[in-house]
Design a protein around this nucleic acid. Structure first.
Length: 423
DNA sequence: CTATAACTCTCAA
DNA sequence: CTAACGTTGAGAGTTATAG
């Protein structure tokens, strides 16, 4: 089996640059929701040593000093660019697994072996020409190795020019290459495992590859044992083209500023339910349980802390925003305590089942507002989310998150387009 | 006791 | 100007609970 992993370079930053070429060559970061932390960095920012996840307010001086441009994240834009990216890459293989917003695997079985580097370069050229986005390509025998090859392509290791095919590198050179890569770069090896492995003298990819499977199994987990097999070219993680149905749908956000009273919390929870329920319906699912959570700011250690959640089972699975909202607000009332500065609320839809095969409740009373929901989704699909919404979501919504540096919805909203004035 | 639900921890992007 | 630290999803392993 041969698998390619294609990954966007600095994806969010690159999306911003497509529509704002003045950002080209300048240090650019994209911030998380609420303009909180750095979630994407241009090469110039990485060169300054700024780490992913750094709170933006800690960077103010450095940013001024180096002229760093910060953008609020614009997920509508990135999702739209992602769809286009996946469509272009899908032209290169009948077997495609969408893995994340900027990554996909392509199955390259039966593509021959000599031309794969060229084939990868062809992908890069087409994506660059059609979308303006830079990507890198990793090619290898397993998903884990393809991810690692992609890392090499990004870092220009082993003479890669944006494409790295482990199939073209001989065993001795591969060993040398792997000895120079930290074990934490491996897919599935996070910070904790890296530390524990290092304590046992396993610090590089090569060291892990040479490790004993039984010992890894005993001292760590099945997962790491699988990773080891994958590193040695034995495929354990299959290419999944059909995305499985969701097990849960979550919508949670921090507030733009602290919230104390119950009413704004109710508005936020109702709004988050509306978002989650819309996603639920778009996937043709029903929720059997609704979970609601609220919490204060855990970073503010000296102010009173409170965190609670409650899961509410529904008598009958539903995709009706109004019914789900009632359940969530019922739960919120039970967990809410006055006297705290709430920083975040969230909802989750759980126990999901496929619509059309409902578990009927003999004693069911209320009926879902199916037609109303369809109408609402259609209107909001045309005019934007929240155009038609339940009164529970509120009007002013002062708790809404900060997005002070948002770019226009270039591909998703007419108002976002720069207009050339006549005369 | 077992089976499962509920919860915690880890990882990923 | 202030003050300010993300979101969503999954799987494995552990603990609590029901029968």
């Amino acid at each position: 089996m041969t698998i390619a992993l294609i990954d966007g370079n600095n994806f969010y930053v690159s999306c911003e640059r497509v529509f704002n070429p003045r950002l080209e060559g300048r240090p650019v970061v994209v911030l998380s929701n609420n303009d909180g932390c750095v979630v994407a960095r241009s090469a110039e920012v990485k060169a300054l040593g700024i780490k992913i996840g750094t709170p933006w307010f800690q960077l103010r001086d450095l940013a001024r000093q180096h002229g760093i441009v910060a953008q609020s994240s614009n997920y509508a834009l990135y999702a739209d660019m992602s769809n286009r990216l996946m469509a272009v890459l899908g032209q290169f293989s009948p077997d495609q697994e969408l893995y994340s917003i900027d990554e996909c695997f392509l199955g390259l079985a039966g593509f021959g072996h000599r031309d794969l580097v060229n084939y990868g370069q062809a992908m890069r050229r087409r994506v660059r020409q059609w979308l303006g986005l830079p990507v890198c390509v990793g090619i290898a025998a397993t998903k884990t190795l393809a991810k690692l090859a992609n890392h090499c392509a990004k870092k220009n290791l082993a003479g890669a020019d944006g494409v790295c095919d482990f199939g073209r590198i001989d065993a001795a050179e591969l060993s040398r290459l792997f000895s120079a890569i930290a074990v934490g770069e491996i897919w599935g090896v996070g910070s904790r495992l890296s530390r524990q492995l290092a304590e046992r003298g396993i610090a590089s990819v090569e060291a892990l590859r040479q490790a004993d499977a039984r010992i890894l199994r005993r001292e760590f987990s099945v997962v790491l044992e699988r990773t080891l097999a994958e590193l040695n070219g034995i495929s354990c993680v299959t290419l999944d083209e059909a995305a499985p149905n969701r097990q849960q749908i979550i919508s949670s956000r921090s507030f733009g500023s602290y919230v104390h009273a119950l009413e704004p919390l109710q508005e936020a929870v109702a709004s988050y339910i509306a978002i989650a329920a819309e996603k639920l319906r778009s996937r043709g699912l029903l929720a059997g349980m609704v979970q609601v959570t609220i919490r204060t700011n855990p970073h503010q250690a000296d102010s009173p802390q409170y965190q609670r959640g409650l899961t509410i089972p529904l008598s009958q699975a539903s995709d009706d925003t109004l019914r789900l909202t009632r359940a969530a607000l019922w739960g919120l009332k039970r967990i809410y305590r006055p006297g705290f500065a709430y920083q975040k609320a969230g909802v989750a839809l759980l126990n999901l089942s496929v619509a059309g095969t409902p578990q009927l409740d003999l004693f069911a009373q209320a009926r879902d507002n199916t037609r109303l929901m369809q109408t609402m989704d259609r209107i909001n699909g045309i005019w934007g989310r929240g155009t038609l919404r339940s009164a529970a979501e509120g009007v002013q919504q002062e708790w809404r998150m900060r997005r002070e540096r948002i770019s226009p919805g270039y591909t998703t909203c007419w108002a976002g387009l720069p207009v050339a004035r006549a005369g």
